Every structure is written in C-alpha cells, then in structure tokens.
Simulated assay, not measured.
Amino acid sequence: MSDLGSVLRLAAFPATPSGGNPAGVVLDARGMSDTEMQAVATEVGYAETAFVVRPPEDEKPPRVGMRYFSPVAEVPFCGHATVATAVALAERVDAEAFLFDTPVGEVRIDITRADGQVTASFTSVQPRVEPIDADVLERLLDVLGLSHDDLDADRPPREAFAGNVHPVLVLASQDTFDGFTFDPDVLRALMDERRWLGTVTVLKALGEGKEGELEARNLFPVGAITEDPATGSAAASVGAYLRDTGLLDAPTTITIHQGRHVGRPSVLRVSIPAEGGITVSGTASAID
C-alpha cells in the first residue's frame, strides 16, 4: 500500500476556503501493517492521517474500524481526521450516522446534509478533568515563556481528556496569547514524558459581546508542524474542562476559533450536555 494516490486529503473545520486542518484519509486500509500505515502518514506529512481498517459494515448505523497516525507515531484518537473521514464516507455511503471503533472506544458521528454540504458531529468518549501537578505546570509555563500572572485567574489550569489528554491553559491577555513562543523540541520532550499524545491547549476567552466564544492555540510539535490549525479532540476536552470547572451552565453550545496563528482559520462548534460525552461539529473540504 505505497500508492499515495489512495490517500484523500481534506481540510477539517475550515472557516475559509484556505482554512481548516489538513488530514490524510485512507478509506480502505484492510491488510495494511502498522509499518505501512506509519510510512504513509510520514510521507503525507499532515498532523494525522486516518486509516479505515474495517470499512462500513451493513448495519445501521454502519460500524467502522479506525486507526490514526501522526508522522512519527500512532495516536489513540484524532478529532479533525475523524470529521474528515466521516465526511468522506458520507459522500459515498447513504447513512445518517457512523459508529467508529477507535483505540479509545466507540465514537458516534452524526451526519447532516444541507445545501450540498456535509457536517459531521462526533461525540467523545466519557471525558475526565484533573488538576495539573504543580511541578508539571511550572515546567510547562517555563517552556512557553509564561508565568502564573499570565493565566486567567478565573479559569484554572487543568488536564482534560475526551479521547486524548490535553493540558488546558487560559490566558488573561490577548497580547500574551498572540505573542508567546516556545522551543518545539523542548515542548515535545515534555509532552512525550507526560504522555500528552494530543496537543497543549492554550485558550483566550473573546470577552464582552462574544460570550460562548474562545480562541485556541493548540501546540503540536511534530516534524515541521508546531501548531494545529483545528483540533477536534482538544475542542471536546475544552468542553469537558468548562463543564467540570463550573465555568458555564450545561447544556450549552460554544464556538472555538483556531488556526489564525498558522494562517489556516478554523471554527469548531462544541455542544456540551449536562453529562456524558462532548459533541464537536464541523465540515471538511477537499484540498486541491
């Protein structure tokens, strides 16, 4: 399976025609070895490539076996590649939903169609939110060139899981949010040590007149990539974080803007129920 012509390339969660997070999608990876899937993901070079290791079965909703690889390793779950795969499948299979069997468990994706566009909405596994160890938080802030004074005092740091573990930091100042920098190699070493297989999620509330809207920078140093343009698993984790910390009254819906800092504007809609998994919705479009 070395023919990269079999890899679809789609941008998930685009806010503009040139926005969204690129994902590779292999719709039939039956018979591919781990080594072959890793080689394809490495050559594609996107943050993640999704592999359908068991195509849709003849049941309702169709059940699909999924695996995800970054350019350097397998990852347990990838939200934007899930949305890209679901949109690609929905363009080929007449289904209103899919059940993805992923390494982190079953993930349901609901499909809506309007004006010729497919929207995929995945509901995460049961999330959990925990404090970040004080010494780990100090190290993370140091890597990002930040201090405790830079954090939003009303929004405490946490580790949030909704498929991948994401440390979540909320900054007080827009200038600090836009301006912080980091050494990708140093951050990668810390992420590998802590088994943060997703992204480091840094947020800024958009403020008065934009309640329920946040902007995110999702740090993901891998290969030539340093930041993710749109991160579905992080969006689900943010929803869990906001609910667990009592920063909003669920059920509700929020909007996360992402990708401005890397020139690929993206938008993710996040539905937060009173309990259970978090639902993240978006579209996907082919990359020319």
Rank of each mutant, 00 (worst) to 15 (best):
A97L: 11
V104K: 03
Q117H: 12
V64K: 09
F122R: 05
M66P: 05
Y46Q: 07
M37T: 07
P71Q: 02
F100A: 06
R63M: 11
D115T: 08
P127I: 01
E91M: 11
R54V: 12
F98Y: 09
F122D: 05
R63I: 13
A81N: 00
A90C: 10
S124K: 00
A114Q: 14
Y46G: 08
A86G: 03
C78A: 15
G79A: 02
E36V: 08
Q126E: 15
G45Y: 03
D115F: 09
G79Q: 03
Y46C: 03
R113F: 02
A114H: 11
E74Y: 08
A90G: 05
V72G: 02
A88W: 01
R113W: 02
R67I: 06
L89E: 05
D94Q: 14
G79S: 02
P61V: 02
V93K: 05
T49W: 02
V118A: 10
P76H: 03
E57S: 15
A86H: 07
T85N: 07
P55G: 11
A47C: 13
L89H: 10
M66E: 01
E57V: 11
M37F: 05
D115M: 10
F69H: 13
T112S: 15
V40D: 10
E106C: 05
K60H: 13
P56K: 04
P71A: 01
M37L: 09
G45Q: 02
G79L: 01
E74A: 13
V75Q: 01
A81I: 09
A86K: 01
